[in-house]
Design a protein around this nucleic acid. Structure first.
Lengths: 156, 156
DNA sequence: GTTAGTTACATGCAAATGCATATAATCGGC
DNA sequence: GCCGATTATATGCATTTGCATGTAACTAAC
């Protein structure tokens, strides 16, 4: 509802705009992911594995597998086995939940935390370079706010 | 450079903002991808296959495999075989390029075009629903503009 | 025109993924 | 406390993916 547009914009225009915005968002995601993947950083852990290490590094509480699943775009079995591999490699530890024997609580091991920090420093710098090269601070703030709204769950 | 912030913001704050914006963007991408994947639309083609059909539907000219690769987040061999499957299923056709015998030009077959349109209608509506539920028209325009800037290639 | 280098795409093979399903634990009536 | 329903995670198996490499075609320098 801008001042220059009629209050009741045709639903088709609105829908088209929404699709264009989503397409541009996907394109940006793909472009940047490719750029980050091209950095010489992923010999020890893949980007997906790093994603898990990073997610675990953010929370002091041990995380459930299903909780991790909300942050990682991967099926539950795939995540389960990705974690298996991280545990085998000594980067992540499974510990039992006393109140729920089904749950497998996950934490970073000291080794895992070190590795996450080491890669995170370099990757973070790379992300900052790419983002600040394209957008001003104001724009970054705006982008964060808009995308944050998008990831809010909602009824339908 | 807002009125309230010093002109020379510390590099760390700037970098942190950039990383937050990227993280929010990835989270939005993951949330929406999951929501779209959950729609009952992907029995005939997977989302990745649809992505290829959609990309082909947008250009009248036959596309090269490598050109497709720029739009799809997939390795070259994986894309090559994904296209193989679409060709086998009669949705995509390979035609030779007279000026370059290496290139495999790709087009939608009539069947492929029909399928893309049929799924595209429903998926597009779903995308519109999710996006307009979260953002106003102004915000959608803004998001498109910001993410468009992000996908511009740039030197480093 | 030959040859080295590059580009476009394909293929062998091991690893990762998703789907369906299994297993095990918790929850909610009764 | 018992039993069906649900939740949390794991596993079997076919498919898909990526990495390394192969093959064929184009390009450019000589």
């Amino acid at each position: 509802m801008t001042a220059t547009a009629p209050a009741a914009a045709p639903a088709r225009a609105r829908s088209h705009l929404a699709n264009d915005a989503w397409e541009a968002t996907m394109a940006a995601h793909a472009t940047l992911m490719r750029r980050f993947a091209a950095e010489d950083l992923w010999s020890d852990v893949s980007m997906r594995e790093y994603d898990v290490l990073y997610t675990l590094s953010k929370c002091d509480e041990p995380q459930r597998l299903s909780e991790l699943g909300r942050h990682v775009l991967l099926s539950q079995p795939a995540l389960s086995r990705l974690v298996d591999r991280l545990v085998e490699r000594g980067l992540v530890a499974r510990c039992a939940d006393p109140s729920d024997a089904r749950a497998a609580h996950l934490t970073l091991t000291p080794t895992g935390r070190d590795l996450q920090r080491r890669i995170g420093r370099r990757h973070g710098a790379s992300v900052a370079r790419a983002m600040t090269a394209a957008l001003t601070e104001e724009e970054l703030t705006l982008l964060e706010s808009l995308t944050h709204k998008l990831s809010q769950e909602h009824r339908s």
